[in-house]
Amino acid sequence: MDDYSIDEAAARTGLTKHTLRYYEREGLLPPIAKASSGHRRYTDDDIGWVKFLQLLRATGMPIREAKAFVTLTWAGDHTIPQRVEVLTGYRSALVERMAQDAEHLETLNRKIDFYSGVLQARDATPEDVTGERAGAR
Rank of each mutant, 00 (worst) to 15 (best):
S37W: 03
R122H: 13
A102Q: 14
L94V: 04
R91H: 12
T130W: 12
R64H: 10
D44A: 14
L53G: 05
W74M: 02
R21L: 05
Y4N: 04
L29E: 03
E106A: 15
Y42T: 00
I63M: 13
R91G: 02
T43E: 06
T59F: 11
R110M: 13
A58H: 10
F69K: 01
Q120F: 07
M98I: 12
G117T: 10
G27I: 04
D113V: 10
N109E: 15
Y90L: 03
I80L: 14
V95L: 14
G48A: 15
H39Y: 15
P126D: 06
S116K: 11
L56A: 13
T125A: 11
E24R: 00
T71C: 00
T71L: 00
D128Y: 08
S5K: 04
E8M: 10
T79A: 04
Y115L: 15
L53C: 10
Q100Y: 08
A33Y: 01
V70P: 00
K111Q: 12
A11Y: 04
P126M: 06
L72A: 01
M1L: 10
K67I: 02
I80D: 07
D113I: 08
Q54M: 12
V95H: 10
W74F: 02
T73Y: 04
T73K: 00
V95N: 11
E103Q: 15
T79D: 02
R57K: 14
A99K: 15
A134S: 14
R122S: 13
T88C: 02
W74K: 03
R122K: 14
E103A: 15
L108S: 13
R122A: 14
L20P: 03
E24K: 01
Q100W: 07
W74P: 00
L20R: 03
V129W: 09
M1N: 09
N109Q: 15
A66V: 14
A35R: 13
D77I: 05
A134I: 11
K67F: 00
I112G: 06
L87V: 06
S36W: 03
D128L: 08
A66T: 13
H78I: 05
I32E: 05
T125H: 09
V118C: 11
M98W: 08
Q82W: 01
I63G: 06
K34D: 07
D44M: 03
T59C: 08
Y42R: 00
D113Y: 09
R57Q: 11
V95A: 12
G60K: 11
D45E: 12
Q82S: 09
H104V: 08
A99P: 04
F69Q: 01
H78F: 03
V95I: 13
P31E: 12
T88F: 00
T79W: 01
M61K: 07
A11T: 09
I47R: 02
L28G: 06
P62K: 08
A93T: 12
Q100T: 11
I47P: 03
A10H: 04
T107L: 14
G27M: 05
K17R: 14
D128I: 07
L72K: 02
L15M: 11
V84M: 10
A102I: 08
T125R: 12
A134C: 09
R133S: 13
